[in-house]
């Protein structure tokens, strides 16, 4: 069984009358690359800020590495963060900025600076001042900072903002490599669904401060993949018939009136005829298959 390293229970954050996060539940397991998906103002950054200790929840609680409350604070050492825009001292170089944080975190082995700079491809510009960095370079330095203390959990808020396509691809590989080889757990938020899909294995959909859905990549694939949707008044009989009469096993009962068939050989006219012959009421049968964007739009209710 996978170890739960982060769990929130009904955490909420209110600023006066405005509710930035409402009763959010999420569970992150060891080894996950956990993607937070949502529009601006969805509550992704607020959730990350609370976990990072930058703000306190109004209600609810969270556990980090099995500890909660004040004892969770001691576990913060095991977390590396990049929340919102990367922030460093403009007058210091990339190396000097990281050296400052090495001193602050009590990291004695300064070779770690070169190691993380190499990971994010900033070795060549390590002596360049931060204020002269491009947005993408700043972003990569922020990621290097998050990785500086060999954390077990890395929280990255919009880490691919400002990166060029090659940079995004390289970073994706870095995340996968660190996740695979060092067993680092990642929590990443992004607006760019396709990029998050390419890197994460579990997803949390959020909107207007509420958690809409927490799904694995397999579940998301299943929900988005091409299928035949059968709307019927008897899903139990429908499932039995398509299995016994047509030999189709790759299907799923979604609601009490909906069955989805994922078998590519399934033909709508054949299924329609077979169900009518067996006195099953059908209100609709059609092909479906949605993109990640459409799936998200459906979730937030923008597109029915």
């Amino acid at each position: 069984m996978q170890e739960v390293i982060l769990q929130t229970k009904k955490i909420s954050k209110r600023y006066g009358k405005f509710s930035a996060l409402e009763q959010a539940d999420m569970t992150v397991y060891q080894g996950d690359i956990y993607g937070l998906i949502g529009r601006n103002g969805a509550g992704k950054t607020t959730a990350m800020k609370m976990i990072a200790g930058l703000t306190e929840p109004t209600d609810g609680e969270y556990t980090i590495f099995g500890k909660k409350g004040t004892s969770a604070r001691s576990e913060k050492r095991r977390i590396g963060c990049l929340i919102e825009n990367p922030a460093f001292f403009g007058g210091l170089t990339a190396y000097q900025n990281l050296k400052y944080y090495c001193y602050q975190k009590g990291i004695t082995d300064l070779k770690q600076i070169d190691h993380v700079l190499t990971l994010v491809n900033l070795s060549d510009v390590k002596n360049k001042k931060f204020r002269k960095f491009s947005l993408g370079m700043k972003q990569r330095l922020g990621i290097a900072f998050a990785l500086l203390d060999n954390p077990d959990l890395v929280i990255l808020d919009e880490p691919i903002n400002g990166l060029d396509p090659i940079g995004i691809s390289e970073l994706r590989e870095t995340f996968h490599k660190l996740n695979r080889e060092n067993n680092i757990t990642f929590m990443i938020s992004s607006h760019i669904l396709s990029e998050l899909y390419a890197v994460a294995n579990r997803f949390l959909f959020m909107d207007k401060g509420k958690v809409l859905q927490e799904v694995t990549k397999q579940e998301l694939d299943l929900a988005c993949s091409r299928c035949l949707v059968v709307r019927t008044d008897d899903t139990k009989k429908t499932a039995m018939l398509i299995e016994s009469e047509l030999g189709i096993e790759d299907y799923k009962v979604i609601h009490q009136d909906e069955v989805r068939i994922y078998d590519e050989s399934a033909k709508s006219d054949v299924i329609n005829k077979m169900l009518i012959q067996n006195d099953v009421g059908i209100s609709g049968i059609y092909e479906s298959g949605v993109s990640l964007e459409d799936y998200f739009k459906q979730l937030i209710g923008e597109e029915k």
Partner: peptide, 18 residues
């Protein structure tokens, strides 16, 4: 004030510093 103008305080607070 440089910590606040550069927003670097959040790097420290999000580490193991209260």
């Amino acid at each position: 004030t440089s910590e606040f103008s550069e927003h670097t305080w959040k790097n420290t607070i999000s580490s193991s510093v209260s």
